[in-house]
Design a protein around this nucleic acid. Sequence first.
DNA 1: CCGGAAGTGGAGTCCTTCCTTCACTTCAAG
DNA 2: CTTGAAGTGAAGGAAGGACTCCACTTCCGG
Lengths: 220, 220
Amino acid sequence: MTKRTVSDRPLRTDAARNRTAIVAAAQRAFAEGGLQVPFDEIARLAGVGEATVHRRFPDRASLIAAAFCDKMTSYADAAAEALAEPDPWKGFCGYVRRVCAMQASDRGFADLLTITFAAANPAVEELELRRDAAFRDWITIVRKARATGRLRPDFHPDDLVVLLMANAGVVAATAGTAPDAWQRHVEYMLQAFAADNSQPLPAPPAREALVRALQRTQRT
Amino acid sequence: MTKRTVSDRPLRTDAARNRTAIVAAAQRAFAEGGLQVPFDEIARLAGVGEATVHRRFPDRASLIAAAFCDKMTSYADAAAEALAEPDPWKGFCGYVRRVCAMQASDRGFADLLTITFAAANPAVEELELRRDAAFRDWITIVRKARATGRLRPDFHPDDLVVLLMANAGVVAATAGTAPDAWQRHVEYMLQAFAADNSQPLPAPPAREALVRALQRTQRT
DNA sequence: CCGGAAGTGGAGTCCTTCCTTCACTTCAAG
DNA sequence: CTTGAAGTGAAGGAAGGACTCCACTTCCGG
């Protein structure tokens, strides 16, 4: 009894080819224009009808999830690699630089790191799992970097989340005209994160509040 | 011969009253929802027809200029006050905090500080003049703060522009859920700007490039 | 208090974007 | 092959937002 549900029946070869083209087109379009790119532009880039995009990806979140699956995996891998780095402070700085560079080179990914999706389908769930895996490694990176005494003791892992929102702002404003502006900003931040001469800071926002901030429907 | 052009004839009293209501409504709406708030919502808030808004403010830039004239004046005044502060480093930090606080309390103003308008009408020109005045004072604040040795010597006045873009990103992402998150980020930045233990940085973006970044038509 | 200029807003156009429908085409199992 | 299930896109509906038109109302100088 090999009864198949709709979702696990394999696509016909032509449909699979189209799906691949759509994902590739979405990756290019999102990288260039952020997560708000209209569906018809993606369809045009993929060389298919708009209806085909909607058929395969019933809502924007599904398409985003499919388009950024690979990149989110790199993101998680980068965290694992940074964690493996023998010098935790180097791992810390390297990871921050690398993630911000990923934002700078892909406006969609920059946006993606400042929102989360209420998982309504498996692809979205998969994406969020990788994000979470990366964050778990990040927490360990922070702990180890703090232990070396090079990272200031009051650094909170959530400070990265806020930095990513800030970097997204810089990238959005300077993309195309001053595409390296973010680097100086990030280096300032890294120097602020170093333990040397660190001064007291306001408390970080409550975890809860930050989670809700990430869940806002979309960037307004 | 008191011939009057269209632009300098005073408005009829009812029209002037409506204009005032529109500006007030726009201030509230922009503060809440950023510069993209639809015209019909502003019209509704003002209690006038949509056509009246369009008649008085032919394009969005005119309305924005009218709505933020006062706030941009405060912005320039804050720079002048910071410049008058006897301790230049205190003036520097106070100004940065104050400006970022203005962004946090008004999403429209946060957006406004990350774009400029190609002045096409007197109100817009006026707004840009005040922005420029503030920036001229800022340059002096930076010079004096550097002279005290408390501000790192490689700080560039344009670093504030990038910080405002970053802060706009934080504010946009956290408004409503973690409305104080920006403060910690700004304190990190101020500590990075302090001369103590400062490390080399990447060069700031070219002035030209930053100016063009501010001129991008709208935040995408 | 009257008449014409100034001002108004409801209703409409145009445009963009999301999303669906359906007559037609393509695939692949038998 | 044949055939029917899977897949397709042109066309169009619905929704929202910018902007305009014009019959009507309000103001105010004489």
